[in-house]
Nucleic acid binder design. Sequence first.
DNA 1: CTGAAAGCGCTTACAG
DNA 2: CTGAAAGCGCTTACAG
Lengths: 342, 342
Amino acid sequence: MENQPNGRARPVRLRDVAALAGVDISTASRALSGQRKVSADATKRVSEAAAALGFAPNQAARNLRLSRTMALGIVIHHFDSPIYLDALEGLGGVYHEHGYELMITTARGDPALYQLLMQRLYERRVDGLILWTPPAVGGALDPFTSGDTPVLAIGVLSAPSPAVPHLNVSEKQPIDAAVQRLAALGHRSLYYLSSPRSSSRQRLPVLDAAARRAGVTFVHEEAPLDQPMPALCDQLRRWLGGPERVTAVIADHRHLGRVTAALHLINVRVPEDVSLIGFARSRWAQEMWLPAATIQTDAVQFGRVVGRTMIDWLGGTRPPETTEVPVAEWIERATIGPAPRP
Amino acid sequence: MENQPNGRARPVRLRDVAALAGVDISTASRALSGQRKVSADATKRVSEAAAALGFAPNQAARNLRLSRTMALGIVIHHFDSPIYLDALEGLGGVYHEHGYELMITTARGDPALYQLLMQRLYERRVDGLILWTPPAVGGALDPFTSGDTPVLAIGVLSAPSPAVPHLNVSEKQPIDAAVQRLAALGHRSLYYLSSPRSSSRQRLPVLDAAARRAGVTFVHEEAPLDQPMPALCDQLRRWLGGPERVTAVIADHRHLGRVTAALHLINVRVPEDVSLIGFARSRWAQEMWLPAATIQTDAVQFGRVVGRTMIDWLGGTRPPETTEVPVAEWIERATIGPAPRP
DNA sequence: CTGAAAGCGCTTACAG
DNA sequence: CTGAAAGCGCTTACAG
């Protein structure tokens, strides 16, 4: 810091360090970077001067000179799940380790705003961009792709453009494990209660395939989260008592608490009468009063994988079109048990 | 975009626009900014050239020239609650409206990393900084404060330094309302079950004062979130049946589900035998199978208030040392009712 | 109204 | 090894 006439301090510049050390600014720069040969004497004087003045280089200026920003952008369509927090922690950690800063923006569900945010991040010249569940994004992508800026999509069934590789959480392995386990316990018919979200819909083909492989029946229903309790009770009673003879219920995390309560109300015991499994996508999803068997996603780890993929691309290695990231695991708990005798 | 020898496009510069329009770069700059008088003819040619080339100004360069970054930093001690997502949405929205970008970092609970992140944001020359529940931060603050960079603290009992004003969510008004309501319903003794978090501890004096004003007794216990169910049942039985004659339970959101279940297990009906109120700090906290009467924080709104406070400070208006932000409200639901007859 | 020049704070070929 | 100079992409007094 250096005092200005008005008494305030303004940031110390490299020029100030060089002056105090009695060398040219270019020598000071080289001494501090350690890249090129500088005499021991000059190096010493420069580092002492830097320390004395509390010099902290202006990275914005440095990056302008180097035609980069060391900033990476992310546009999130909507902060509608705690999963983003986990993922941001993993992503930010990797970015930080590599010296990048994260510029975060959210479109609050508005596609027009989503495109505007992309435009703004382009004007910032972010070195790379992540699009989380992007809407149709059209020409907003062009400035990035024509300049070969890495752009990654997350949480989409298909990428917004062939120029944009995408990554998804894969629950295939734990879903298989869970279904196999249920089959081994004698269950012959599963019921999946999902919420109206794209991540839930992505599970359908996977659950279906797993059920097929395990030789069990699979039925599915989607219900809104604010469905009244009596309706949910009726629904469960119908499936459990119906011709399908459902003996295992799989529910999205957001339904899990309600399902537990509904089973209680209709006097169905867990796991004696029915086995219960939940999907959990974030750390907070685990906080249930009844610890359920779970297909648990490690979203922090997912964030780390996405971060590394971005860093690798910045290093020259383009990722494949599609990457299924296996960061979910099957966690068996006491809410599952042998199928009841018919 | 302009094609380079290698076939890639590189960003169009103002210089390219000026060349195409046949004017000096300074005229192009002025025409695009609209600040100073430029002839209609030149303005037209420049804007056409800009459009034709798809010119998007390099804000990093612009900001360097203007000695600012239009970037604001935030350091979050730990992503340990979904409340951050709500708050970030509000904060980011306000920042965006004013042309600022948000650089987000998290220390994952590590005080040393916290200071390092502050240092890095200083090197980025962020125009302002938010410290969320900062640990002892010491000299890491100096570069900011000696340069009069706005720094705000959030979620602390006292600011890390007198130079750092702080803002907190205030639940005073809804807590008062809830306690008054319980008193009016004939309740004479309240029990608060909290989790071991600083936000919970901040509630104690507020609850205590409210109880005093309403003329009711207030008892409190802190329990870990992984406390076994039988222990919780015992605990509740003790208070409800004990000499305190507790008839109303207030619980942190994270305990609420467990408490509901425990009351069920010990055959205590809600609200006939006991009234139940929860604290909720984020949107996701509402997703309970039993919709409880709630002291609900609007964390998005809190984020907006913090954002505006920062923007105002950047505009010259320094906030007071301490601001209690009244963004919580009392939401009455069917989990409260008249106190049972003794 | 417009152009030539300086400068934001750095880094790095280019000569010495 | 070191200094003088150019330049990253902009903006803005300063002359004309």
